[in-house]
Protein backbone atom coordinates (compact mmCIF):
# COMPACT_ATOMS: atom_id res chain seq x y z
CA UNK A 1 0.00 0.00 0.00
CA UNK A 2 2.61 2.52 1.07
CA UNK A 3 4.72 1.42 -1.91
CA UNK A 4 2.23 2.97 -4.28
CA UNK A 5 2.04 6.33 -2.55
CA UNK A 6 3.62 9.13 -4.59
CA UNK A 7 6.83 10.24 -2.97
CA UNK A 8 6.66 13.72 -4.47
CA UNK A 9 7.08 16.36 -1.82
CA UNK A 10 4.99 18.94 -3.71
CA UNK A 11 1.83 17.18 -2.64
CA UNK A 12 2.86 16.84 0.95
CA UNK A 13 -0.36 18.50 2.09
CA UNK A 14 -3.71 16.92 2.90
CA UNK A 15 -3.48 14.01 0.50
CA UNK A 16 -0.47 12.53 2.26
CA UNK A 17 -1.93 13.17 5.70
CA UNK A 18 -5.19 11.43 4.92
CA UNK A 19 -3.44 8.40 3.43
CA UNK A 20 -1.32 8.16 6.55
CA UNK A 21 -4.46 8.38 8.66
CA UNK A 22 -6.00 5.55 6.66
CA UNK A 23 -2.85 3.51 7.23
CA UNK A 24 -2.93 4.28 10.91
CA UNK A 25 -6.60 3.33 11.14
CA UNK A 26 -5.99 0.00 9.43
CA UNK A 27 -3.04 -0.65 11.71
CA UNK A 28 -5.05 0.31 14.75
CA UNK A 29 -7.82 -2.07 13.78
CA UNK A 30 -5.26 -4.79 13.13
CA UNK A 31 -3.77 -4.27 16.58
CA UNK A 32 -7.23 -4.57 18.14
CA UNK A 33 -7.81 -7.86 16.33
CA UNK A 34 -4.38 -9.08 17.39
CA UNK A 35 -5.11 -8.16 20.99
CA UNK A 36 -8.40 -9.99 20.94
CA UNK A 37 -6.71 -13.09 19.52
CA UNK A 38 -3.96 -12.96 22.11
CA UNK A 39 -6.50 -12.73 24.91
CA UNK A 40 -8.60 -15.67 23.76
CA UNK A 41 -6.24 -18.18 22.11
CA UNK A 42 -3.18 -19.57 23.92
CA UNK A 43 0.15 -19.58 22.04
CA UNK A 44 0.00 -23.37 22.04
CA UNK A 45 -3.16 -25.09 23.23
CA UNK A 46 -3.89 -28.41 24.94
CA UNK A 47 -4.29 -31.69 23.12
CA UNK A 48 -7.80 -31.93 21.67
CA UNK A 49 -9.62 -34.81 20.04
CA UNK A 50 -10.13 -34.44 16.30
CA UNK A 51 -13.85 -34.51 16.98
CA UNK A 52 -13.60 -30.85 17.92
CA UNK A 53 -12.81 -30.20 14.27
CA UNK A 54 -15.92 -32.10 13.20
CA UNK A 55 -18.03 -29.80 15.36
CA UNK A 56 -16.36 -26.79 13.82
CA UNK A 57 -17.43 -27.82 10.32
CA UNK A 58 -20.85 -29.29 11.11
CA UNK A 59 -22.59 -27.29 8.43
CA UNK A 60 -19.89 -27.46 5.81
CA UNK A 61 -20.09 -30.58 3.58
CA UNK A 62 -16.78 -29.95 1.75
CA UNK A 63 -14.76 -29.62 4.94
CA UNK A 64 -16.76 -32.32 6.69
CA UNK A 65 -15.56 -34.94 4.19
CA UNK A 66 -11.99 -33.85 4.68
CA UNK A 67 -12.26 -33.88 8.47
CA UNK A 68 -13.55 -37.46 8.20
CA UNK A 69 -10.54 -38.37 6.10
CA UNK A 70 -8.24 -36.65 8.60
CA UNK A 71 -9.87 -38.50 11.52
CA UNK A 72 -8.98 -41.79 9.86
CA UNK A 73 -5.29 -40.79 9.91
CA UNK A 74 -4.90 -38.75 13.11
CA UNK A 75 -6.37 -38.79 16.60
CA UNK A 76 -5.49 -35.43 18.12
CA UNK A 77 -4.91 -31.82 17.23
CA UNK A 78 -3.07 -29.11 19.14
CA UNK A 79 -4.01 -25.60 18.09
CA UNK A 80 -1.63 -22.68 17.93
CA UNK A 81 -2.34 -18.96 18.05
CA UNK A 82 -2.89 -17.51 14.57
CA UNK A 83 -0.41 -14.66 14.89
CA UNK A 84 1.66 -15.19 11.76
CA UNK A 85 4.24 -17.18 13.73
CA UNK A 86 2.14 -20.34 13.87
CA UNK A 87 4.26 -22.44 11.51
CA UNK A 88 7.45 -21.78 13.47
CA UNK A 89 5.75 -22.25 16.81
CA UNK A 90 3.89 -25.41 15.79
CA UNK A 91 6.99 -26.89 14.17
CA UNK A 92 9.32 -26.27 17.11
CA UNK A 93 6.80 -27.44 19.69
CA UNK A 94 6.00 -30.66 17.82
CA UNK A 95 9.64 -31.41 17.10
CA UNK A 96 10.91 -30.78 20.64
CA UNK A 97 8.01 -32.85 21.95
CA UNK A 98 9.12 -35.66 19.66
CA UNK A 99 12.74 -35.35 20.84
CA UNK A 100 11.59 -36.05 24.39
CA UNK A 101 11.13 -39.68 23.38
CA UNK A 102 13.85 -39.96 20.73
CA UNK A 103 17.30 -39.58 22.26
CA UNK A 104 19.09 -40.55 19.06
CA UNK A 105 17.34 -37.89 17.01
CA UNK A 106 18.05 -35.45 19.84
CA UNK A 107 21.81 -36.04 19.62
CA UNK A 108 21.70 -35.42 15.88
CA UNK A 109 19.65 -32.25 16.30
CA UNK A 110 21.82 -30.95 19.14
CA UNK A 111 24.89 -30.90 16.88
CA UNK A 112 23.03 -29.04 14.14
CA UNK A 113 21.59 -26.54 16.62
CA UNK A 114 24.96 -26.00 18.28
CA UNK A 115 26.64 -25.12 14.98
CA UNK A 116 23.83 -22.87 13.77
CA UNK A 117 25.05 -19.73 15.54
CA UNK A 118 28.46 -19.73 13.82
CA UNK A 119 26.75 -20.04 10.44
CA UNK A 120 24.54 -17.05 11.16
CA UNK A 121 27.36 -14.86 12.45
CA UNK A 122 29.47 -15.77 9.40
CA UNK A 123 26.59 -14.63 7.19
CA UNK A 124 26.79 -11.17 8.78
CA UNK A 125 23.98 -11.34 11.35
CA UNK A 126 24.80 -9.17 14.37
CA UNK A 127 26.64 -11.45 16.83
CA UNK A 128 25.38 -9.63 19.89
CA UNK A 129 21.70 -10.28 19.27
CA UNK A 130 22.08 -13.66 17.52
CA UNK A 131 23.82 -14.89 20.67
CA UNK A 132 20.94 -13.64 22.77
CA UNK A 133 18.36 -15.68 20.83
CA UNK A 134 20.69 -18.66 20.50
CA UNK A 135 21.21 -18.92 24.25
CA UNK A 136 17.50 -18.96 25.08
CA UNK A 137 16.84 -21.44 22.28
CA UNK A 138 19.60 -23.77 23.44
CA UNK A 139 18.45 -23.48 27.04
CA UNK A 140 15.10 -24.98 26.04
CA UNK A 141 16.72 -27.59 23.77
CA UNK A 142 19.08 -28.70 26.53
CA UNK A 143 16.27 -29.07 29.03
CA UNK A 144 14.68 -31.53 26.62
CA UNK A 145 18.01 -33.35 26.24
CA UNK A 146 18.46 -33.73 29.99
CA UNK A 147 15.23 -35.69 30.22
CA UNK A 148 14.99 -37.33 26.80
CA UNK A 149 14.41 -41.07 27.14
CA UNK A 150 13.89 -40.83 30.92
CA UNK A 151 11.25 -42.44 33.15
CA UNK A 152 7.55 -41.88 32.47
CA UNK A 153 7.33 -39.33 35.30
CA UNK A 154 10.31 -37.49 33.93
CA UNK A 155 8.80 -37.38 30.44
CA UNK A 156 5.53 -36.03 31.81
CA UNK A 157 7.38 -33.31 33.72
CA UNK A 158 9.49 -32.20 30.76
CA UNK A 159 6.44 -32.16 28.47
CA UNK A 160 4.69 -29.90 30.96
CA UNK A 161 7.75 -27.67 31.21
CA UNK A 162 7.90 -27.44 27.42
CA UNK A 163 4.22 -26.55 27.29
CA UNK A 164 4.68 -23.84 29.92
CA UNK A 165 7.73 -22.35 28.18
CA UNK A 166 5.93 -22.27 24.83
CA UNK A 167 3.08 -20.40 26.45
CA UNK A 168 5.34 -17.78 27.99
CA UNK A 169 5.48 -15.04 25.39
CA UNK A 170 9.14 -14.28 26.09
CA UNK A 171 10.52 -17.80 25.64
CA UNK A 172 8.06 -18.74 22.94
CA UNK A 173 8.86 -15.72 20.77
CA UNK A 174 12.60 -16.14 21.30
CA UNK A 175 12.36 -19.66 19.89
CA UNK A 176 10.35 -18.35 16.93
CA UNK A 177 12.93 -15.62 16.26
CA UNK A 178 15.78 -18.09 16.31
CA UNK A 179 14.03 -20.42 13.87
CA UNK A 180 13.34 -17.45 11.63
CA UNK A 181 17.04 -16.62 11.68
CA UNK A 182 17.97 -20.22 10.84
CA UNK A 183 15.47 -20.15 7.97
CA UNK A 184 16.90 -16.88 6.70
CA UNK A 185 20.43 -18.27 7.04
CA UNK A 186 19.53 -21.33 4.98
CA UNK A 187 17.88 -19.21 2.26
CA UNK A 188 20.94 -16.98 2.03
CA UNK A 189 23.44 -19.83 2.06
CA UNK A 190 21.65 -21.58 -0.81
CA UNK A 191 20.45 -18.39 -2.46
CA UNK A 192 20.92 -19.63 -6.03
CA UNK A 193 18.49 -22.46 -5.39
CA UNK A 194 15.90 -20.48 -3.45
CA UNK A 195 15.89 -17.52 -5.83
CA UNK A 196 13.70 -19.65 -8.15
CA UNK A 197 10.95 -19.76 -5.52
CA UNK A 198 10.72 -16.02 -5.09
CA UNK A 199 8.18 -14.25 -7.23
CA UNK A 200 8.84 -10.77 -8.55
CA UNK A 201 12.15 -8.99 -8.57
CA UNK A 202 13.13 -9.35 -4.94
CA UNK A 203 16.54 -10.83 -4.11
CA UNK A 204 16.80 -13.60 -1.54
CA UNK A 205 18.28 -11.14 0.97
CA UNK A 206 15.42 -8.70 0.48
CA UNK A 207 12.92 -11.51 0.81
CA UNK A 208 14.54 -12.62 4.06
CA UNK A 209 14.46 -9.11 5.51
CA UNK A 210 10.83 -8.57 4.57
CA UNK A 211 9.19 -11.97 4.86
CA UNK A 212 11.35 -14.22 7.03
CA UNK A 213 13.15 -12.31 9.78
CA UNK A 214 10.39 -9.97 10.97
CA UNK A 215 7.98 -11.48 13.48
CA UNK A 216 4.34 -12.13 12.58
CA UNK A 217 5.10 -12.67 8.88
CA UNK A 218 3.27 -15.75 7.67
CA UNK A 219 5.15 -18.76 6.35
CA UNK A 220 4.93 -20.10 2.85
CA UNK A 221 6.32 -23.24 1.22
CA UNK A 222 9.70 -21.63 0.86
CA UNK A 223 9.99 -21.10 4.64
CA UNK A 224 9.11 -24.74 5.31
CA UNK A 225 11.50 -26.07 2.68
CA UNK A 226 14.35 -23.95 4.02
CA UNK A 227 13.81 -24.73 7.70
CA UNK A 228 13.30 -28.48 7.22
CA UNK A 229 16.45 -28.59 5.11
CA UNK A 230 18.51 -26.51 7.52
CA UNK A 231 17.60 -28.69 10.51
CA UNK A 232 17.27 -31.92 8.52
CA UNK A 233 13.85 -32.60 10.02
CA UNK A 234 11.05 -34.26 8.06
CA UNK A 235 7.72 -32.38 8.14
CA UNK A 236 4.42 -33.63 6.75
CA UNK A 237 1.84 -30.95 6.08
CA UNK A 238 -1.79 -31.97 5.58
CA UNK A 239 -3.64 -29.49 3.42
CA UNK A 240 -7.27 -28.87 4.20
CA UNK A 241 -8.95 -26.34 1.92
CA UNK A 242 -11.90 -25.91 -0.44
CA UNK A 243 -10.10 -27.83 -3.18
CA UNK A 244 -11.78 -30.77 -4.91
CA UNK A 245 -11.84 -34.28 -3.49
CA UNK A 246 -12.52 -35.69 -0.06
CA UNK A 247 -8.88 -36.33 0.88
CA UNK A 248 -6.53 -34.12 2.84
CA UNK A 249 -3.43 -34.02 0.67
CA UNK A 250 -0.06 -34.64 2.30
CA UNK A 251 3.10 -32.83 1.35
CA UNK A 252 6.44 -33.92 2.80
CA UNK A 253 9.38 -31.57 3.36
CA UNK A 254 12.14 -32.25 2.41
CA UNK A 255 10.74 -34.58 -0.22
CA UNK A 256 11.16 -38.22 0.73
CA UNK A 257 12.20 -37.53 4.33
CA UNK A 258 10.58 -39.49 7.16
CA UNK A 259 8.11 -37.10 8.78
CA UNK A 260 8.63 -36.53 12.50
CA UNK A 261 6.38 -33.49 12.65
CA UNK A 262 2.81 -33.50 11.34
CA UNK A 263 1.02 -30.22 10.75
CA UNK A 264 -2.47 -29.37 9.62
CA UNK A 265 -2.68 -26.48 7.20
CA UNK A 266 -5.88 -24.56 6.76
CA UNK A 267 -5.61 -21.41 4.63
CA UNK A 268 -3.35 -19.03 6.53
CA UNK A 269 -2.79 -21.25 9.57
CA UNK A 270 -0.89 -24.26 10.95
CA UNK A 271 -1.82 -26.54 13.86
CA UNK A 272 -0.12 -29.71 15.14
CA UNK A 273 -1.50 -33.20 14.38
CA UNK A 274 -0.97 -36.42 16.35
CA UNK A 275 -1.54 -39.96 15.13
Amino acid sequence: MADDAPSSSTFAGNSVDSSINQDELIMKQQREIEQEISETIPLVGDLESLQTLEKEYNEDPVYMLKVKDLSAKYKYIRRTRPDGNCFFRAFSYAYLEHLVTDKQEYEKFYEIAKNSKEILVALGFPQFTVEDFYETFMEVVQRVGEHAGGTLDELGAIRQELHDKFNKQGYSDYIVVYLRLITSGQLQTEHDFYQNFIEGSRTVTEFCRQEVEPMYKESDHIHIIALSNALKVGVRVRYMDRGEGSQVMAHDFPEGAKPLVHLLYRPGHYDILYA
Binding site: D23, P126, T129, V177
Partner: peptide, 15 residues
Protein backbone atom coordinates in the same frame (compact mmCIF):
# COMPACT_ATOMS: atom_id res chain seq x y z
CA UNK B 1 10.48 1.53 9.58
CA UNK B 2 12.01 0.37 6.36
CA UNK B 3 11.37 3.02 3.75
CA UNK B 4 8.20 2.26 1.83
CA UNK B 5 7.09 -0.45 4.24
CA UNK B 6 5.25 -0.66 7.48
CA UNK B 7 7.04 -0.58 10.82
CA UNK B 8 6.28 -4.26 11.31
CA UNK B 9 9.42 -4.92 9.33
CA UNK B 10 11.44 -4.20 12.48
CA UNK B 11 13.60 -7.21 13.21
CA UNK B 12 14.24 -8.61 16.66
CA UNK B 13 17.91 -9.07 15.77
CA UNK B 14 18.28 -5.30 15.60
CA UNK B 15 19.04 -3.46 18.81
Amino acid sequence: SISGHHPETWQPSWS
